[in-house]
Design a protein around this nucleic acid. Structure first.
Length: 366
DNA sequence: GTATGCTTTCGGC
DNA sequence: TTACGGCCGAAAGCATAC
């Protein structure tokens, strides 16, 4: 058993890059791909922006109106997301990438891990050449650039891919892992978001090197055994998480923004029932059943709240979804004064429909 | 004490 | 000055079972 070589391939500013390719006139302008909520003309958020727009501080997640303010003096282009089209492009690219991997794991619409240990016979020279070839192949077939990180595990591959982009290629051999990670801010580690970053900073830990040297017992006291162990290992570039082909999703959900904020259940339920129908459609298309149903509410202050219910047995019964969603909203509204801005429905605890049938068959037939 | 399951929140893209 | 989507998986926090 030889050491692993793992790649992370990340498509650059994916949605906006696809729009640039679709319409080359956009090429040198700020391009902002938006999710319009439909509430008012410009309500909604930025999904992705190209690098020209990013120079003006426009990035993923900011309000569209704020993006417009930042770009008011330039000839910027605002486009609505065309998710269906991006998904088709994604599928083609993922199929290219899959062909280069011993084991392939798609993480999101624009990101995938490739375990190339066998293919490269553990050689980083081979891995570098392979990564360059993958970039060429994706560009020649789809005219899109990507950034690739190569390293001994997912953790290092991911940080390496982020290190140089767009159109980057960063290879970190095992003997360089510590030197590579040490100066980087802890924020770069998966699992360290804004909140954890703050907590670490109060402990005097800003860089990965400082995290590596930090007393492990103190880390346990603050974050608990599991998270402390993860942080400690991560700071040393240790990560055994395998690259694994992903099967069916673990949850399916739909969310939508209400015309106006409300806590009136008669205004919420028609929307929620529609979301039930959409989620039910997704579920049955994939021939899945679920055991849990959740509602979630984004309140006026943008705080996220949710409630869920788990059944005894898996189901795909639309009426049961609607009744459960009604019950959950009634309960939620009774115990809070919040006004809902957006409402969502989620099913989780998913299973293949036939798996259930098999169980039943073997039970009755067996 | 550890494992397991459920609910809720967090955070990345 | 403010402004604010739609997904997904991971993790936290809690309860219960062994």
């Amino acid at each position: 058993m030889q050491a692993r070589i793992i790649m992370l391939v990340d498509l650059d500013y994916f949605f906006a890059q696809i729009e640039e390719k679709r319409n080359p006139a956009l090429k040198d302008k700020p391009v902002v791909v938006c999710v319009y909520s439909g509430r008012t003309k410009d309500s909604g958020a930025v999904s992705t922006a190209n690098y020209v727009a990013r120079k003006y501080g426009v990035k993923s997640g900011i309000p569209i109106s704020l993006a417009k303010t930042k770009l008011k003096d330039v000839d910027a282009v605002f486009l609505p997301v065309d998710k269906e089209y991006y998904s088709k492009v994604s599928e083609k690219i993922m199929n290219i990438l899959r062909g280069y991997a011993d084991i392939f794991e798609q993480v999101s619409v624009d990101e995938a891990y490739l375990d190339v240990s066998q293919k490269t016979r553990g050689s980083y020279l081979d891995a570098s050449e392979l990564a360059a070839r993958i970039k060429d192949d994706v560009f020649n077939q789809q005219k899109l650039t990507c950034s690739i990180g190569v390293g001994p595990n997912k953790l290092v591959a991911k940080i390496a891919a982020d290190y140089q982009k767009p159109d980057g290629l960063t290879v970190v051999k095992p003997e360089y892992v510590l030197r590579f990670l040490s100066p980087l801010p802890v924020r770069r580690l998966v699992g360290v978001g804004r909140k954890t970053e703050q907590r670490l900073e109060t402990l005097g830990v800003k860089t990965i090197a400082q995290l590596a040297r930090f007393d492990i017992q103190k880390l346990v006291d603050v974050f608990g055994r599991n998270l402390a162990a993860y942080f400690h290992n991560a700071s040393l570039g240790i990560d055994e998480d395998p690259v694994e082909e992903r099967g069916e999703p673990e949850s399916l959900s739909k969310i939508s923004t209400l015309k106006e904020d409300t806590n009136d259940i008669t205004k919420i339920l028609p929307v929620a029932y529609h979301l039930c129908e959409e989620v039910h459609k997704k579920l049955t298309q994939r021939q899945l059943v679920c055991r849990s149903v959740s509602i979630y509410v984004v309140a006026s202050d943008l705080g996220m709240h949710s409630r869920s219910k788990t059944f005894e047995n898996p189901t795909s019964d639309l009426q049961l979804f609607k009744d459960t969603v009604k019950e959950l909203f009634e309960k939620f509204l009774a115990e809070t004064d919040l006004q809902a801005r957006r409402v969502g429905v989620k099913v989780s605890n998913l299973d293949k429909k036939e798996a259930m049938q098999k169980q039943l068959t073997s039970f009755f037939g067996g």
